[in-house]
Measured scan of single mutants.
Amino acid sequence: MGFKLLSKLLVYLTASIMAIASPLAFSVDSSGEYPTVSEIPVGEVRLYQIADGVWSHIATQSFDGAVYPSNGLIVRDGDELLLIDTAWGAKNTAALLAEIEKQIGLPVTRAVSTHFHDDRVGGVDVLRAAGVATYASPSTRRLAEVEGNEIPTHSLEGLSSSGDAVRFGPVELFYPGAAHSTDNLIVYVPSASVLYGGCAIYELSRTSAGNVADADLAEWPTSIERIQQHYPEAQFVIPGHGLPGGLDLLKHTTNVVKAHTNRSVVE
C-alpha cells in the first residue's frame, strides 16, 4: 500500500471513529477524501466538511520552486461564519470567499490569524475590503508590521502568557507558548472536538522541520505538551499544512522538532 493511500485511509478511519463516538456532533463529509496538494491548482481553494458547521479550507501556493498546501478553518456561528487564517495570499483568499459563498452561503463576518507569517495573514486586506472584521493577538499584529505583512485590524486580548485561553464565538483560542513562531495560536472547536494546530503542528508525513527561522526550538516541545494537557479530548487535529489526523500529530511534531534540534547540535 502506497504512503499517500495509507495517509488518506488514516484520515478516513479517524473521521469514521469520530462519527461513531459522537453521532450528534459529527456529520463528516462523505463526498470524498481530504484534498491534497496535487489536486488543488494554485489560485483555487477546496472546502472539506469535518463536522456539522465545521470545515477546513485548503489552498496551495508556490514557494521556492515548489507547491505547498495550506489549511485553515471555518466555523459556523449562528447565521454567520468565523474564518481562521487566510488562504495564503490575496488571490487565494478572494477564491476562498467565493467558494464559501458557493458552498455554504453564509457571510464571513470575523477572521482570526493564528500567527504573523504570510500563509496566515496574506489576504487580510481582501477580507477587510469584503467587510470582514480581522483579528490577531497584539504580538501577531506587531510582528506582521515588522515583517511588512498585512496586519489584522483588531487585537485579541488575554493571550499574552503561555497557557492563556479565551473564548471567541464558537471557538476557544489558546496560546501554548512559542513553537513554530513566538505568537502562534491554537484554535479548538469544543462542539466538535476539532483542534486546529496551525503551523505549530505537523502532518504525519512530514519528517523535516522546514521553516524554523522564527521558531523557538527549545520551547516548542513544552508548548505541545500544554496543548495535549489542555485538549486531551480532541479527536480531529488539523495541521497548518497537509493531512489531518488525531492527537498523534502532536507527538510526531515533537519528535521531528527534537530530531532537528539534535542534528543542529551535532553539526
Results as ranks from 00 to 15, higher is better:
residue 137 S to K: 13
residue 241 H to N: 01
residue 46 R to W: 09
residue 115 H to S: 01
residue 235 Q to K: 03
residue 179 A to F: 00
residue 95 A to E: 07
residue 244 P to Q: 07
residue 109 T to F: 07
residue 159 L to D: 02
residue 142 R to F: 14
residue 215 A to L: 10
residue 190 P to E: 05
residue 45 V to S: 12
residue 181 S to W: 00
residue 35 P to G: 12
residue 135 Y to K: 01
residue 251 K to Q: 15
residue 233 E to V: 09
residue 165 A to N: 14
residue 23 P to N: 12
residue 114 T to P: 00
residue 85 D to T: 00
residue 78 G to L: 09
residue 205 S to D: 08
residue 254 T to R: 10
residue 266 V to A: 07
residue 9 L to N: 10
residue 131 G to Q: 10
residue 263 R to T: 12
residue 248 D to M: 03
residue 165 A to S: 10
residue 232 P to S: 13
residue 5 L to W: 10
residue 111 A to D: 03
residue 264 S to M: 02
residue 124 V to R: 03
residue 25 A to E: 08
residue 112 V to Q: 01
residue 152 P to W: 13
residue 16 S to W: 04
residue 36 T to W: 05
residue 187 V to L: 12
residue 218 A to F: 12
residue 132 V to S: 08
residue 237 V to E: 01
residue 152 P to V: 10
residue 205 S to Q: 09
residue 139 S to D: 12
residue 37 V to K: 07
residue 106 L to P: 04
residue 24 L to Y: 14
residue 176 P to H: 00
residue 166 V to Q: 13
residue 42 V to D: 11
residue 198 G to E: 03
residue 212 V to R: 08
residue 179 A to E: 01
residue 66 A to E: 08
residue 232 P to H: 05
residue 77 D to I: 08
residue 58 I to N: 07
residue 162 S to T: 04
residue 228 Q to M: 15
residue 23 P to W: 08
residue 132 V to E: 00
residue 92 N to Q: 13
residue 203 E to P: 05
residue 69 P to A: 13
residue 39 E to W: 07
residue 10 L to Y: 08
residue 166 V to H: 02
residue 215 A to P: 04
residue 235 Q to F: 02
residue 96 L to I: 14
residue 225 E to F: 15
residue 57 H to K: 01
residue 158 G to H: 15
residue 124 V to D: 07
residue 32 G to I: 15
residue 48 Y to N: 08
residue 178 A to F: 07
residue 246 G to M: 09
residue 50 I to L: 05
residue 40 I to H: 03
residue 146 V to N: 03
residue 239 P to K: 01
residue 202 Y to K: 08
residue 205 S to T: 04
residue 101 E to P: 15
residue 181 S to M: 00
residue 37 V to F: 06
residue 87 A to K: 00
residue 110 R to T: 14
residue 217 L to G: 07
residue 34 Y to Q: 07
residue 245 G to F: 03
residue 214 D to Q: 15
residue 223 S to D: 02
residue 204 L to W: 10
residue 135 Y to L: 08
residue 224 I to V: 10
residue 202 Y to I: 08
residue 139 S to A: 09
residue 234 A to D: 02
residue 54 V to E: 02
residue 196 Y to Q: 02
residue 20 I to Q: 00
residue 132 V to R: 01
residue 247 L to W: 06
residue 150 E to M: 03
residue 54 V to I: 14
residue 165 A to C: 12
residue 57 H to A: 14
residue 191 S to H: 06
residue 117 H to G: 00
residue 38 S to M: 13
residue 66 A to V: 08
residue 86 T to M: 07
residue 43 G to N: 14
residue 62 S to K: 14
residue 76 R to Y: 05
residue 62 S to W: 03
residue 82 L to W: 03
residue 14 T to E: 14
residue 218 A to T: 09
residue 54 V to W: 01
residue 58 I to Y: 07
residue 233 E to A: 08
residue 144 A to D: 14
residue 34 Y to A: 13
residue 133 A to E: 04
